[in-house]
């Protein structure tokens, strides 16, 4: 039991199960899944579909946080890439042409690469604190997105593009497959190569990594680029959901939810070990919380109250200072270290 309790996913899984159970009790139809027009429908499937953009952004954020950084600009990057894609499509004579949709996606991704590289240069090369460096793009990015859409909400009518957000594949929402594909890709990129371990090494002990011959600048740079690309895909999804791009509101505050998902998932904000599985669980918890509150006829904004409670609870549980003060067990490794004479 104790081993189970100490598993890093114990608390996130417990919270998710509790939320789902509460929903099922409140509304027994919650867990039901129906087949309609060859598509599966149900609250649970909705939750997964709606959390897809957050999962994407949070996965990229996981890598950045693992290096010991943070990326506040992902929401703005969502808005920019969504705006570029929608703007390009809206200019095409045939908005349903697959070729032009693909071109739009390439444009959006290309721009995201540039923005990610910008963040990467500021943090890894110039050496500005990550929170400050990415704040610049967080502020300016919203303006850039509106510049692209010229302050309008660009509405498009493109069924290939719409598919990214609300389409179906093999009876399931297409967005789930996108999220799954990115997850698999990132997992392969980090765990099939040595990238994951090297990121964890840089985030865990930057000086030791340097002395082991790791070129940490490149690694940190790469993390910001990956984060931006993930954000761009999420941006496509968010704009495809509503078939329109609004520079002001697309992906608004998604960076905060993403950071939250990463922290709930057990990746430390100080950097080091990272867990994609935990991050995905964290994103699902956040979305389930929102859906639950919604289902209970409370305004979506009020769900922020619950979110606040969850953030603080999860952070406190993970904080060594809190554990030391409130658990009467043997002291943790950290406090032991401090007692060794200098």
């Amino acid at each position: 039991m104790s081993a189970l309790k100490n598993h890093r996913l114990f608390w996130p899984v417990l919270v998710l199960v509790a939320l789902l159970t509460a929903n099922a009790i409140y509304r027994p139809s919650f867990l039901a899944v129906q087949m309609r027009d060859g598509h599966l429908y149900g609250s649970v499937i909705d939750i997964v579909r709606l959390s897809a953009p957050l999962i994407l952004v949070a996965l990229g954020m996981t890598l950045v946080i693992a290096t010991g950084g943070i990326d506040l600009s992902v929401g703005s990057i969502c808005a920019i890439s969504g705006a570029v894609a929608c703007f390009y499509i809206s200019q095409q004579p045939d908005q349903n042409s697959l070729a032009s949709v693909l071109t739009a996606l390439v444009l959006g991704l290309g721009l995201a690469l540039v923005l990610g590289a910008w963040n990467g240069v500021l943090v890894a090369i110039i050496g500005i604190q990550p929170i400050i460096a990415t704040l610049i793009l967080m502020v300016a990015g919203r303006g850039l997105a509106q510049l692209i859409t010229e302050g309008q909400i660009i509405t498009i009518n493109s069924s290939p593009y719409k598919t990214i957000g609300v389409g179906h594949l093999l009876t399931l929402p297409f967005a789930i497959f996108v999220a799954l594909a990115v997850t698999v890709l990132l997992a392969a990129l980090t765990r099939r190569t040595a990238l994951g371990m090297i990121i964890e090494s840089v985030g865990g002990n930057a000086e030791a990594s340097r002395l082991a011959g790791i070129r940490s600048r490149r690694i940190i740079f790469l993390a910001y680029v990956i984060s931006a690309v993930c954000a761009a895909i999420a941006g496509f999804m968010l704009t495809a959901n509503v078939s329109s791009a609004d520079g002001n509101s697309a992906g608004l505050w998604i960076e905060l939810d993403a950071i939250l998902a990463v922290v709930i998932g057990g990746t430390s904000l100080a950097g080091g070990r990272f867990f994609f599985s935990g991050t995905i669980l964290g994103a699902l918890i956040i979305q389930t919380l929102t859906t639950t509150v919604y289902a209970m006829d409370i305004s979506p904004q009020t769900s922020l109250l619950f979110k606040a409670v969850v953030v603080i609870a999860v952070c406190l549980i993970q904080a060594p200072a809190f554990r030391d003060k409130f658990t009467r067990r043997k002291p943790t490794a950290v406090s032991q270290k401090e007692q060794v004479p200098a």
């Binding site: 905060l256 950071i259 904000l269 769900s303 109250l305 953030v311 200072a321 003060k325």
Partner: peptide, 24 residues
């Protein structure tokens, strides 16, 4: 101060809390 959690996270929770109170 006492639990040594980053200001960023704590005040983020405060931000959620206060905004939630508004709609509540």
């Amino acid at each position: 101060h006492y639990f040594e959690i980053q200001p960023f996270i704590v005040t983020l929770a405060g931000m959620f809390f206060a905004r939630g109170m508004c709609t509540w």
